[in-house]
Write a protein that binds this DNA or RNA. Structure first.
Lengths: 334, 334
DNA sequence: TGTCTTCATGACAGCGCTTGCAGGCTAGAA
DNA sequence: TTCTAGCCTGCAAGCGCTGTCATGAAGACA
């Protein structure tokens, strides 16, 4: 910055003021400074300014991993929005239990970012408390955190509509598949299951525990076994509702492997509207992942800007049922 | 830090030394300082230390977007490796032409990270030059940059083997589908095509321009048209080799739409080994995306640590042909 | 006992920027 | 012409750390 000042023939204060767009700089000076900065391709050392201002110009995102379609899509929604806001994107991916403990113990984000966006993370009360005394604005994405700014979809209501669709097609035996969750990372699962059950109750169908199945692991096997258990029930389901599209894809592969026609024999419904879902013809509940990311950034900006604003903002984004080829009326009974 | 020093009854220098694990601190003092730091849950302000040391403890990653499986997987490979190295991950996603110009114009990474990892980015000579005078270690990932540390797979050789497989199955008319590339973002495409053509030459098959097809856009349509053009040739291809698995999935969807059995009528081969490929039974060339990310981090660390080391390191990771259900001998001629 | 090491610690000068304050300059008013 | 009021601009004091140098205490050795 001293170089720029020298070249423009002004003081560093003036350069600083110019580059931050303060109004108290004359047009001619501003032009000179900007030219000098451009010629030297000056880029500000954020460390130095944050030391003074206490603002880092950086936003941290905490995610359980980086591999799922949903998280990638959310992140892609965030990136341009952050760029537009002049904020940089710091990613903390906390995948296993050890990393997780470490993250909450050391809180590396502290003083290293202006806000923390917590995406799809089921926090324990202790962790929640730990984040609270981080002294940093928090925004919860894809999850509802009471009393905290959050952006999410109404998983319960969406699942309710999904199951209703299956019921309307005539299905009465509907299984629900969720990912087994050793780590406590999943958040949506509970609400989606709740919505599913509510739809069943609404329709006067009694709940059957055998039809709720947990499939282990993020990828890997276990799907075939789950399918096997469902199909060997005395009255097997005619429709399968999965917690995510990823799970639905694995399910479809397992069903094809087992020569079970979809939707001829069973219907399958997912949740997410993964890019591949359209290609696979999967009926699903679309949630606007990229929009979730963009909205989260908008919310973050408003939290950062308003000094006295209401910090308890909740934004619920709409979901949509997308009927495709994997759902149909159940086969006629013989 | 002053608070910690006060509480422990020592000077800030001693606190700093303790927290950085320098050896010149006595056991008793170290214990006192650590206790004080823990009680106050002190977290260091990285801005301040980087201002002094010139090191940010942060690594920037430049990517053309965040949505493809390949980039997500590479990023997931990097994240834990960076964490282990005590480095933070800053993501610059530069998607459209405007953003791109802006990035290379302003070079926001300058002085804001210790190194820049450039992933899957076909740089113009001007851009390359611009990065060079960034005064920052560069590591090229999934691309070969002569004279610069890079980690990549041999796309040409992999494609060569892919096409050989099709030839070995008996195919003689093999089309190659690549993504149309207005932005110049793709890098691998050229080399993969080159490998494909080399295999044809090797087999004494003459090259036919009609069999090389560009499909517009990242997603979207255009695939049906491409399929139409191929199938309306006087002698249509019996096998289709796509530049990426993403493209292959779209192709498979278009073929199913057109009632063309795979591999009965045409064989399809992809490139990547996307998570979904196994589920779809797609024959493909597996490239180790996560391993690419991990290796890139290893390379980055060695570049950052060695002050005098050889900066021209090249690491080529192996690819593997994964034969699955979408390839078979061509239909017998009638 | 005196001198030389060695070791642990503190004092202090910045790192590159921001910001309150003071001062110089210009222009309009008296 | 002199005075006042704005405008711009520069000065200088930090922001929270690190790293160099100096200091003093304790041990080693003759």
């Amino acid at each position: 910055m001293a170089d720029v000042a020298h070249r423009a023939g002004v003081s560093v204060s003036t350069v600083s003021r110019t580059l931050r767009g303060l109004s108290t700089v004359s047009e001619t000076t501003r032009a000179r400074v900007e030219a000098a900065a451009r010629e030297l391709s000056f880029a500000i050392t954020r460390s130095a300014s944050s030391l003074v201002t206490g603002r880092t110009g950086r936003v941290a995102v905490l995610m359980p991993h980086l591999e799922s379609w949903f998280l990638s899509a959310t992140l892609s929604g965030m990136a341009p929005a952050l760029r537009d806001a002049g904020l940089e994107l710091l990613v903390y991916s906390v995948t296993d239990v050890q990393e997780r403990a470490d993250f909450f113990d050391r809180l590396p984000a502290r003083r290293n970012a202006d806000a923390l966006l917590v995406v799809s993370f089921a926090l324990s009360p202790a962790e929640r408390a730990r984040l609270d005394d981080l002294g940093m604005p928090l925004v919860f994405v894809s999850q509802h955190a009471p009393g905290r700014p959050s952006v999410y979809v109404d998983d319960e209501e969406a699942a309710l509509r999904g199951t209703r669709h299956l019921l309307n097609l005539g299905h009465r035996r509907i299984a629900f598949l969720q990912t087994a969750d050793e780590t406590g990372f999943a958040w949506s699962s509970k609400n989606r299951l709740a919505g599913h059950l509510r739809a069943l109750t609404e329709a006067g169908i009694e709940h059957d525990d055998d039809l709720i199945m947990s499939v282990p692991g993020w990828k890997g096997s276990g799907m075939a076994a789950a399918v096997g258990r469902l199909l060997s029930l005395q009255t097997p389901p005619t429709a399968l509702f999965t917690e995510t599209d990823d799970l639905a894809f694995r399910l479809l592969a397992a069903l094809r492997e087992a020569n079970i026609p979809v939707p001829g024999r069973v219907s399958v419904m997912g949740f997410d509207d993964h890019v591949m879902s359209a290609l696979m013809g999967l009926t699903t509940l679309a949630q606007p992942a990229a929009e979730l990311g963009r909205t989260a950034v908008r919310l973050t900006r408003s939290v950062l800007d308003d000094t006295d604003g209401d910090p308890q903002r909740h934004i619920i984004l709409p979901t949509e049922l997308v009927p495709r080829r994997t759902t149909a009326p159940p086969p006629v009974e013989r």
